[in-house]
Design a protein around this nucleic acid. Structure first.
Lengths: 210, 210
DNA sequence: AACGGAATTATACGGAGGTTTCATCCGGGT
DNA sequence: ACCCGGATGAAACCTCCGTATAATTCCGTT
């Protein structure tokens, strides 16, 4: 029921209190060469050390302790951004709408067809992969940004706003040469090979002149 | 049941074959000063001349002719990007999930509370307003981009990729001075006041060097 | 007290950006 | 035949960017 999820591929995390369903799902995912790890409750999932590798969550709505919906609502706050697929045997429309509004990939009613679950998981894994590639690019930029001093960040903002060194000097009450120095430091620390690069980094960081 | 939707505010378009519900909804929205226009079917909505102003759609799922779900699926293809709220008296979970996956703002089961509908409409109108402001900014950029000649567009791509005029000249087999000329034309035609501006425009246009 | 990092500024130089003026060439349309 | 827009490019000129060198000040750590 559990397999190593090395660099080979993503892991499907199953959280359901029904051992039979856990086994069935694990078998289903194994049939398409997906690694799986199963848990009987949300608490068990949270208390277990996991790699933070790629994957997705398959949650039962009705479980002892935290329900699948409540669990889903808490995931973002816990820093877990795995895409979620919900399953239920006794759901209703408001419940499914709430889950989808909260960003669930799918909301399946039991019994569901194997293919429907596989489709949902594939969609979830694709969504996770996309988020990870976005985050990976952003992490390097954020890390570099952290190394900037306060002054350098001010200059960074104005440079990427398109202001000339002279104008920035006026705004910050500095000499133009000082702005040039800071600007050079920003380019070096951010590993930007051109102003265009730096502007895109600012965009990714959500930095706006206003 | 119908009110002018001048520059005052957005319009809620109601599509439902039940006259009583149409009237009730119109009354509800009027109570919060929202303009409404009601239709008995999807076909009637499509055949009627409407302003393309801000608003949202409130659709019944079960209607004679095109169902609310099918109608929703066709809207994007018809160039109609109004946010959709669906209502149904006899829906099921797969139906609601399909609607939400297709981007519906909400999926309400009849009977619903007035406040739930109003909340959904407010969310929908906010989403529409946001999309419109994004589109408005993009339209100007797209229009300006249309005026560029083929050569200017090539230079545009490489400039926003961060290449120096000298490098661009090499790639396009031109003299550096000619690149400068084209570059100047690009800046003027795109109304970019700085290279940073131009880079952001390229981002918005989805222009990538690769 | 000594050291190092951050911030500041000046001078100087070379490279890159940007514009103007002038001029040539080509294809399309009047 | 003529004109015009697009593309090309040379010369000249100015501004802006970037960096190296050197120096000063302040602040926090050792």
């Amino acid at each position: 029921m559990s397999r190593r999820d090395g660099p080979a591929g993503p892991t499907v995390f199953i959280v359901d209190d029904d051992p039979d369903l856990r086994a069935a799902l694990a078998g289903l995912f194994r049939s398409v060469d997906l690694a799986t790890t199963a848990y009987a409750s949300a608490a068990e999932f949270l208390n277990t050390k996991r790699s933070d590798g790629p994957g997705c969550l398959v949650l039962d709505v009705r479980m002892p302790g935290l329900s699948g919906l409540d669990f889903q609502a808490q995931l973002a706050g816990l820093g877990i951004h795995l895409p979620v697929i919900l399953m239920t045997g006794h759901g209703d429309i408001p419940m499914s709408v709430r889950a989808m509004k909260a960003g669930a990939v799918d909301f399946l009613t039991k019994p569901f067809r194997d293919q429907d679950m596989l489709d949902a998981v594939m969609t979830a894994l694709a969504r996770d992969a996309e988020r990870r590639s976005r985050d990976a690019g952003l992490l390097a930029v954020r890390t570099a940004y952290e190394t900037l001093t306060a002054r350098e960040r001010e200059v960074f903002v104005h440079v990427t706003a398109g202001l000339m060194n002279k104008q920035i000097a006026g705004l910050l009450d500095l000499s133009e040469i000082t702005v040039k120095i800071h600007r050079g430091h920003v380019m070096r620390k951010m590993a930007a090979r051109s102003l265009a690069d730096l502007v895109r980094m600012a965009q990714a960081l959500g930095i706006v002149p206003g």
